[in-house]
Computed example of a mutant assay.
Amino acid sequence: MRAGLIGAALCLMMWGQAALAGTVLVVGDSISAAFGLDTRQGWAALLEKRLADEGFSHRVVNASISGDTSAGGAARLPRLLAEHKPDVVILELGGNDGLRGQPPAQLQQNLATMIDLSRDSGAKVLLLGMLLPPNYGVRYTTAFANVYKNLAEEKQVAFVPFFLEGVGGVRGMMQTDGIHPALKAQPVLLENAWPALEPLL
């Protein structure tokens, strides 16, 4: 009888711990998909280890796809929210929109939709901002950068102005293509995101 009660208590404890465990959903492009690297070496994988080291029970679901755009992310998000029921959604999209010269207004609309969908599902949102190289022209690069700033202010979401700070354009931090972060850059990306993410957990 006593053994049965102990077993039941242990089951309840394990159930309670599972119920308390949260989910962080990363919706991004090649930067978060660790293009050119083993995915276990990417910043999202390092995030899962950091969470465990810091005493958080959250799991990380990395739903990033290389080459994805904000439109692609917005189309995929409803299914991801329904499937994973995340507590926090990290949005790392827009770089491919910019590289393809798509209208900043469309990027802003897509990201706004993703923020609203995430919040409607009960999740908190972290928006990771991007900047474009200067060769795209001052007018376009400024409008592109303002998308993230404006959304952060309008939607009052956690925000990292430039996710590639200390990585983009830094010697040794990028792969040979000059577009994707190298292995040594992955911990830097995590450090860029962590201060804004931690309060959401």
Rank of each mutant, 00 (worst) to 15 (best):
M14T: 13
H58L: 02
T141W: 01
S30K: 00
V125T: 09
H180F: 05
L107G: 12
R59D: 02
L25C: 03
K85E: 15
L200H: 09
A44R: 07
L201V: 06
A71H: 11
M174Q: 08
M130I: 06
E154A: 13
R171K: 15
W43D: 03
G172N: 08
V170I: 15
Q156C: 04
E154Y: 01
M130R: 01
P199D: 05
L77S: 04
E165P: 03
A82M: 12
A193L: 15
A33P: 11
G7Y: 12
L189G: 02
P133F: 12
V60F: 03
S70I: 08
T141V: 12
L131C: 02
V125N: 09
G101L: 10
L12E: 09
L25S: 10
S64Y: 07
F162K: 04
G101D: 06
Y148P: 01
P134G: 11
G129V: 00
P199C: 07
L151Q: 05
R139D: 15
L99A: 15
L131D: 10
A74Q: 14
A123R: 08
K184P: 10
T176I: 03
Q106F: 01
Q41V: 09
V138L: 14
P104N: 11
E165Y: 08
V167C: 03
A105H: 09
N110R: 09
Y140M: 00
A158D: 02
L51I: 07
M114Y: 11
V157F: 06
L20D: 13
Y136K: 12
L93C: 12
F144C: 09
G122L: 12
M174F: 10
Q41N: 14
E198F: 11
L190I: 05
S32E: 10
P195H: 04
G95L: 00
N110K: 02
G4M: 14
G94F: 07
S121K: 13
D29R: 06
S64M: 09
Y148T: 00
L10M: 15
R59C: 06
P187F: 10
K155S: 03
G36V: 10
S30D: 10
M114T: 03
L80A: 06
S64K: 08
G4A: 12
P187N: 13
R50K: 15
S118A: 12
E54C: 00
R59K: 13
L189R: 06
A75I: 00
T69G: 08
D29P: 07
S32R: 04
I179P: 11
L183D: 10
R50F: 01
I115F: 01
L5Y: 13
H180K: 09
E92P: 04
V138P: 06
F56H: 14
M173C: 06
G122M: 09
N192T: 06
H84F: 14
V147D: 02
G166D: 11
L47W: 11
A74N: 13
T39M: 04
H84Y: 15
P86Q: 02
G172R: 01
V61F: 04
E198P: 05
E92Y: 08
H58E: 15
L80W: 00
I179G: 02
